[in-house]
Design a protein around this nucleic acid. Structure first.
Length: 487
RNA sequence: GCCGUUGUAGCUCAGCUGGUUUAGAGCGCCAGACUGUGGAUCUGGAUGUCAUGGGUUCAAAUCCCAUCAACGGUACCA
């Protein structure tokens, strides 16, 4: 039996765990500053509740982990936190509205894993349910900016890109494509068109134009059927996608002009304008939040504003290869998701933070400062006859509020210091017979030593290097340890 | 799902168009030089059913077929 992991699943070690905890704490504080409250919902839901409809067959829908429980009910691991939220809102009608919650949780998707894509990953969402106001959407953008700033990203290192599905639908109408059928579902042609548009960043205008027209054959020889649009329709969409400008106002003017004859499109532009006015009023400028017509956001349930956030800092992986990260925060307005349960409209908007991507990006950018260990101090055990003394010192430090551990393994001092080094423990305390006789302790600063090591070539100077360790009276141990940890 | 590439030590890989031996290197790991000190240096050490199954051949890590797995591209992703 070989120990192994499901593909797309991971074990998380302390370095990553502690980094994530720091990230969650930082973002959480921002969420709470905006008045969002925490909730938790189960990992498992009934399949139909979660939005997957299972015709009476044995096979679950693609993309979700689903199975029958002991009652033969179809259940599934949640694939996002939004569907469970809509269930919750519908189930507890007495919740005061608007209801504004945040939620951290694992979600699962049974898809092909890839670089930075897992089958089990964290989402950290905020949503406002019960408000149709564009202020709710504008606020989402503000939260994203504040969260990224709190994590240490400067203005210009990230960009929140916003668009509106009503604008997209308006453009589809003008191109002669009915966006939705009488049941309110997207038409096949609209879907194909939106999918093509969504690939703009990867394929460029040319590739998208092929997909809008007859179809596209990629390098591997694989053929993807296109939407079969007319040349005029393609030209219109290209014109739409090419819209850009100095600031939000300019982009909005161009968009308004393009969809002037579409009431749906006009409504979308008006919504975007309203959001932008609120953002400008509190100082979020176009280097932070920009209007971007190319943002589509999948196809799902969005009905109005949609948001996507990218990091604009150049990022390289450990091999020096440039690495692009997809959307770090993504979301939008979904006014008809809760309707499924309630039978009436329930406006809602929100965004999801892809913690894993963000974490990976910050790691590659060298911006994660959290340690691997929780111990601040390692008390080495050089002389086994002094174990009680070591234990006493360890415990006294703990009582003083200093996280520390006594070396519990086997081996000489060299091995013990190596252990401290491997775990990134900042300080080591050494007490041998010399120190014991004089009632002293030696405190070694491993961080300082690490810095010096890169500059020192030969062993003699390394051994004699000053300021790596100090010997102080036993009675001064707390003050000295605290002083050395502060740096 | 489809197309392609790859599968040799914990990791990264070398091993040319089949035949020098008991299959190599670097990194990492362990031990020692340094007996009370992490790095560096030096010395020594451990580790492989050459992915699996079959075939061709006097001879296969090397060629052929199948399977599995990984990676890349593409599609799908409510």
């Amino acid at each position: 039996m070989k120990p192994r992991l499901l593909k797309g699943f991971r074990d998380i070690f302390s370095a990553e765990y502690l980094a994530r905890r720091w990230m969650v704490e930082t973002v959480r504080k921002v969420y709470e500053r905006y008045g969002f409250v925490p909730i938790e919902t189960p990992a498992l839901e009934y399949v139909d509740v979660i939005g997957k409809y299972l015709p009476d067959c044995d096979k679950a829908e693609e993309g979700i982990f689903a199975f029958r429980d002991s009652d033969q009910s179809w259940v599934a691991l949640r694939y996002d936190l939004t569907a469970p939220l809509s269930r919750l809102v519908a189930q507890y009608p007495n919740l005061p509205h608007p209801f504004r919650r945040y939620q951290l949780g694992l979600v699962w998707r049974d898809e092909k894993p890839g670089l930075g894509r897992f089958r089990e990953f964290y989402q950290f969402d905020i949503d406002t349910v019960g408000s149709a106001s564009m202020a709710a959407d504008a606020e989402v953008c503000m939260v994203i900016c504040d969260a990224l700033q709190a994590l240490g990203f400067a203005k210009g290192e990230y960009l929140v890109k916003i668009n509106n599905r009503k604008v997209l639908n308006g453009v589809l109408e003008l191109a002669g494509i009915p966006p939705v059928d009488d049941k309110g579902e997207f038409t096949a042609q609209a879907l194909t068109t939106l999918r093509a548009v969504d690939k703009l960043d990867r394929l460029g205008f040319k590739g998208v134009a092929e997909l809008l027209g007859p179809g596209r054959r990629d390098e591997s020889g694989d053929f993807t059927r296109g939407a079969g649009l007319t040349a005029e329709a393609i030209a219109l969409i290209e014109k739409y996608l090419g819209i850009s400008g100095k600031g939000r106002e300019e982009v909005l003017r161009s968009l308004a002009e393009l969809v002037a004859t579409s009431p749906m499109g006009q409504e979308g532009v008006a919504e975007l304008r309203e959001m932008c006015e609120l953002l400008s009023a509190v100082g979020y400028d176009s280097t932070q939040v920009t209007v971007d017509p190319t943002v589509v956001r999948g196809l799902s349930y969005y009905t109005g504003p949609v948001f996507e956030t990218v990091l604009t800092v150049p990022c390289r992986d450990e091999h020096g290869e440039p690495r692009q990260f997809g959307s770090i925060f993504g979301g939008g307005r979904y006014d008809s998701l809760v309707e499924r349960f309630l039978g009436e409209k329930m406006p809602a908007t929100g965004v999801s933070c892809g913690l894993d991507r963000l974490l990976e990006a910050m790691r590659l950018l060298g911006r994660i400062k959290t340690p691997k260990a929780t111990s601040q101090v390692l008390i080495t055990t050089m002389d086994k006859s002094l174990m009680a003394h070591y234990q006493k010192i360890t415990h006294d430090l703990r009582r003083a509020g200093i996280a520390c551990e006594m070396f519990l393994g086997q081996g000489n001092i060299k091995k013990q210091l190596k252990y401290a080094d491997q775990w990134d423990i900042p300080l080591a305390i050494i007490i041998g017979s010399n120190e014991m006789a004089r009632q002293e302790v030696t405190i070694k600063d491993l961080r300082k030593g690490r810095e010096l090591a890169s500059k020192i070539e030969d062993r003699e100077t390394w051994k004699k290097a000053e300021q790596i360790q100090v010997t102080v009276p036993l009675s001064d141990i707390f003050s000295k340890v605290q002083e050395m940890l502060k740096i």
